[in-house]
Amino acid sequence: MIRSRGYAVPLVGVLLALATGIALGAGPLTDTGSSAAPGPAVHQPAPQAGYADAFAGAVATRLYGNGLSRRPVAVLTAPGADPATVAAVTAQVKAAGGQVSGTYALGSQLVDPQQKSLVDTLGAELGKQLHAHLDRSATTYPRIGELLAVAAANRGNSVGQVNDDVSAVRQSMVAAHLVTVPHDAQGNQPGTAPLVLLVLGHDLDQAIADGLVSGLAARSRGVVVIGDTAAPDLVGLRQDGVTKVAAAVDGAETTAGQVASVLALIRSWRTPGGSFGASGVTGAAPLG
């Protein structure tokens, strides 16, 4: 069971309150007794549409409090993830003091229901070969999610070494076009990271999304999944109980959502799960 924590007033509500002004000098207390007919009504411009994002961006670093210092993050991008969103949230991770260990692109075959046989066969074979024991009761997608975690994540406090298990999983999944593993100019691949940020793109089959995220959460210290406002996959993760082990944040297309996702990463170091963002039920952002 997730322990509840106190949260500040939801960020969106705070922003709306700040953005809403009360026009002084326009009410009955300003009556001067003049008999002149009132002039035409003056249209008050609406608050700037981008104020919430501007505010979130301005206060983000102070909210983070360097909360990701010395805490590596592996970024996973699902098919259709917006590169601009990925770049923006990566910048926010760095603003919180974090280090992106690597960005891994999930292949379309990994999340294609028509390729389930391939995913199942590869997962079963890799499970037999690894020194690390996977959950033997896991079905196709939770198992491949665990294997993704072996390739990119760890449950420790720092960057993990690329050992035989990590190399075997990476090589097999790359060969099957299930994931792309980053490397530097010399061909060196990154170590694994305790925290995982999964950026969604196209809507996934919900059973696949549930399985991948729950598998990632089983072998990492913390997982945060981010998608656009009211993304169906995030709603499904919450309804299916996956947000008990991994945090979901919607509003990825906004600065406010990106800031909330980094705050969720900070929280996930010690407390997993939660539903945050524009449609979050736990709160707009974990501020406590």
Rank of each mutant, 00 (worst) to 15 (best):
M1D: 11
G6H: 11
V14W: 10
L15Q: 13
L18G: 10
T20S: 06
G21V: 11
L24K: 09
L29M: 09
L29P: 07
G33D: 07
S34L: 11
V42F: 03
P45M: 09
A46Y: 10
A49Y: 05
F55M: 10
T61Q: 13
T61H: 12
S69M: 11
R70D: 15
V73A: 04
V73T: 01
P83V: 09
A87S: 15
A91G: 12
V93N: 08
G98P: 03
G98S: 07
Q99R: 14
V100D: 01
V100G: 02
G102L: 07
G102P: 01
T103G: 08
Y104P: 01
S108T: 15
L110V: 07
D112Y: 02
D112G: 06
P113I: 09
Q114D: 13
L118V: 10
D120N: 13
L122N: 01
G123V: 04
A124I: 10
Q129G: 01
R136A: 14
S137A: 14
S137Y: 06
R143S: 04
N154S: 12
R155F: 06
N157G: 09
V159N: 08
R170I: 01
Q171Y: 06
V174G: 09
V174K: 11
V174W: 04
A175E: 12
D184V: 05
D184R: 04
G187M: 07
G187F: 07
Q189S: 11
G191L: 10
G191E: 02
V199W: 04
L200Q: 00
G201L: 05
D203T: 15
D205I: 00
D205C: 04
I208P: 00
G211I: 02
G211S: 06
L212N: 00
G215M: 04
A218H: 02
G227C: 05
D228A: 12
T229Q: 13
A230V: 08
A230F: 10
P232I: 02
G236Y: 09
L237N: 02
L237Q: 04
R238L: 14
R238Q: 13
D240P: 06
D240R: 14
D240T: 14
G241C: 04
A247G: 11
A252T: 04
T254H: 13
Q258I: 03
A260W: 00
V262H: 02
V262I: 09
V262N: 05
I266K: 03
S268I: 07
R270E: 14
T271S: 13
T271D: 13
P272A: 14
P272F: 04
G273M: 00
G273V: 01
A278G: 08
S279I: 07
A285I: 00
A285L: 01
A285Y: 00
A285M: 06
P286Q: 07
L287F: 09
L287C: 05
